[in-house]
Design a binder for these strands. Sequence first.
DNA 1: ATAAGTGCAAAACATTTGCAGGCTT
DNA 2: AAGCCTGCAAATGTTTTGCACTTAT
Lengths: 137, 137
Amino acid sequence: MDTQDLMKIFRENGYKVTAQRLAICDLILSRKDHPTAEQIYQNLKKKYPMISIGTIYKTLHLLKELGLIQELGFNEGSVRYDPDMELHINMICSECGKIHDYKCDKVKEMWNVIISDIRVKPKGQRIDIYYECEECK
Amino acid sequence: MDTQDLMKIFRENGYKVTAQRLAICDLILSRKDHPTAEQIYQNLKKKYPMISIGTIYKTLHLLKELGLIQELGFNEGSVRYDPDMELHINMICSECGKIHDYKCDKVKEMWNVIISDIRVKPKGQRIDIYYECEECK
DNA sequence: ATAAGTGCAAAACATTTGCAGGCTT
DNA sequence: AAGCCTGCAAATGTTTTGCACTTAT
């Protein structure tokens, strides 16, 4: 997903292309650690000191509506944004809170078995595993 | 899990048995729809008009610490409390938001395959499926 | 030119905290 | 009797909203 694709998606859906939107997309789509709105804000302020937290939230909602990112509410109350829309497992360290995605065919295969067993057509899913990461051990 | 068991658990862990704590437990352990703190509060006010929202939160944190309930942050930002600590799938209607648990051996079986594939010892997990429920169809 | 998007600040929520008085042990 | 627990209210933190100004189309 590069800038050209993004611009196309915005325009096709009747949204304007702005520097702020591109910057937010650029940041979130390149990061794999599921940042919070506040983390995105702090990071972008370096390059765009005038950007406001309200714009961050509005853009994140827009990206969610466009199906480009997923919003994940976590147990300690934090909300994080995940640009990976494919089936994957969120591996969460229960000590340090770091998250990384785990993706493989085996999981997809098993997931399909579960889905056909339940007999529903899922519109989306979310799988989290809490564990202790290498660094924290 | 009846009142006697709860009282025992509280006392064994050095916590006092109070009417409020028992009422909150009674409500949450009997409901299968994963209520929010506010919903628990509104419901209990009928019977205990003086109960405060602060007490609800404190008790929920206590129950979580004791491993009796699970806290689930959802995608629209809401936080719900789930008394089912076993492996199960949260089936969430993407239209009306209603949640019910799905539990069966097939899921456990598939889950074990996934776990052994990833090679980690999970401390906990969470599985959500978004779909359209019968009523909303 | 027009309508949508931005930054700012205030408002709205949800959750946590501090404390005086009440209740379990 | 002692200390934990409660209700209340204030504080905190996060997200949303309203509005005048700016920018993309």
